[in-house]
């Protein structure tokens, strides 16, 4: 493994999270289109997805979307400002600070729904 620094890992994570979110989106479209076969099919599928495995998957997707979104803002700054590239490393650490601040309350709330049944 090439011993790149922050920028390399930011890029790899961005690519992996992007592909994972795309896969989720396709699954989601399939899931929604099951309603074409009528309410029985659709409701049965939704009931099946009550399984905590899917709940955990959803938390994972949220975690990946959040990274992709925040690092996407970093990339916009690097692409469109004259200073973004110079501070890319600091920006990446900023991404993780925001990730913890926004993500952790979100993940804990979601996990509460997955395992506690909500409310």
């Amino acid at each position: 493994m090439y011993r790149g620094r922050e920028g390399q890992w930011a890029f790899y994570l961005h690519r992996i999270s992007g592909v994972a979110v795309l896969l989720f989106l396709m699954l989601h479209v399939l899931e929604m289109s099951s309603s074409m076969f009528g309410p029985e099919w659709f409701n049965a599928l939704l009931a099946f997805e009550r399984n905590p495995v899917f709940g955990l998957g959803l938390v994972l997707v949220a975690a990946l979307v959040l990274y992709h979104a925040l690092n996407g803002l970093r990339i916009i700054l690097m692409d469109f400002t004259s200073w973004g590239v110079r501070y890319q490393r600091q920006l990446w650490y900023g991404v993780w600070v925001l990730y913890v601040l926004i993500g952790f309350p979100m993940f804990f709330t979601m996990l509460g729904y997955v395992f506690g049944g909500g409310e």
Binding site: R5, G7, Q8, F11, M78, D79, G84, V85
Partner: peptide, 22 residues
């Protein structure tokens, strides 16, 4: 270029490669 910055880190002449590409 997907701004992975390995080029900038690797340059033995300390050229800010990614900056120039951008």
């Amino acid at each position: 270029c997907r701004t992975a910055y390995n080029c900038t880190e690797a340059c033995p002449r300390e050229i800010p490669v990614t900056q120039l590409i951008q």
